[in-house]
């Protein structure tokens, strides 16, 4: 049986999503998409220049890839909604990653505004994948608002710190069963991507760690394999990590007249 990820009726065989910012050149970005086998990439509307085909980032994305425009630059729900509508009118499809950030030092998402934007856009028929700060109540509200997946941050954007939010993301994975949980932001190494998948994330989205590598296509492939390995481990139901050796003679044996 093939292990496919289903989001809003679309099937993905790769669980590695790639961001398209920060690359040194667009050819390297294209290669990274190809070598990783990623089937979903995010592109900031602010970076799309339709007047110039040489510069147009979209012409570097393989045809079969699902493009999810992100609302980078939006400071509140209203601006995110406007960016999404512009993207749709311009013909970039209706998959939207909502990114509402009103904090320019840490780039933390504003959960409340993200919920508002999710509600409006899913009501308009968009496939909405909100980027959020992991919080169970917010995740539930996003599902109620019509999110097609919920994307908690692993750690601060661009920090390469990995799964600093692990305990809270585990809660989301356990409790949010209606939609996939995709770990987005802060994943700096393939092993961290594997870790996110091992705990049951449905997919991982990375950007900085790939774009910043000396060889982005090779790093993208490494991430894709990290994600695959983690997924396989999750499906194989690995044994729990134990902090001490199991006592060979049971401590409770005396209760059983043995």
């Amino acid at each position: 049986m093939e292990d496919t990820l289903l989001i809003a009726g679309r099937e993905f065989t790769s669980r590695f999503f790639l961001g398209t910012g920060k690359f040194g050149n667009k050819a390297a970005m294209k290669e990274a998409i190809i070598t990783s086998g990623s089937q979903l990439v995010t592109v900031a509307l602010r970076r799309i220049d339709l007047d110039d085909t040489d510069e147009n980032i979209l012409s570097f994305i393989p045809e079969s890839t699902t493009i999810m425009v992100n609302t980078s630059g939006a400071r509140n729900a209203d601006e995110a909604v406007r960016i999404a509508r512009i993207a749709k009118e311009a013909g970039y499809g209706d998959w939207i990653k909502i990114e509402v950030i009103n904090d320019s030092r840490y780039l933390l998402p504003d959960n409340q505004e993200t919920i508002k934007a999710t509600k409006v856009l899913s009501g308009e028929g968009f496939v909405v994948l909100p980027y959020m700060n992991p919080d169970l109540y917010v995740a539930k509200a996003l599902v109620d608002a019509g999110a097609a997946a919920v994307m908690p941050l692993g750690s601060l954007i661009g920090s390469n710190q990995g799964l600093r939010m692990r305990a809270l993301i585990e809660v989301l994975i356990e409790e949010i069963i209606e939609v996939p949980i995709v770990v987005d932001a802060g994943i700096g190494r393939p092993s961290q991507a594997a870790e996110a998948m091992e705990i049951g994330a449905a997919a991982v989205l990375a950007n900085t760690a790939v774009a910043d590598a000396e060889d982005p296509p090779l790093m993208a492939a490494a991430f894709a394999r990290g994600v695959e390995a983690g997924r396989m481990a999750y499906l194989a139901k690995m044994g729990k990590e134990r902090t001490m050796a199991r006592a060979s003679s049971p401590l409770t044996g005396f209760l059983y007249d043995e």
């Binding site: 690359f23 040194g24 050149n25 667009k26 509307l45 602010r46 970076r47 799309i48 220049d49 110039d52 510069e55 630059g73 601006e79 406007r82 960016i83 512009i86």
Partner: peptide, 17 residues
């Protein structure tokens, strides 16, 4: 910039009214 391995970004913002 390209020769030095940088991506010259021309479009960085789209006015959203």
């Amino acid at each position: 910039l390209m020769a030095k391995g940088f991506d010259p970004v021309v479009t960085e913002w789209r006015n959203i009214v």
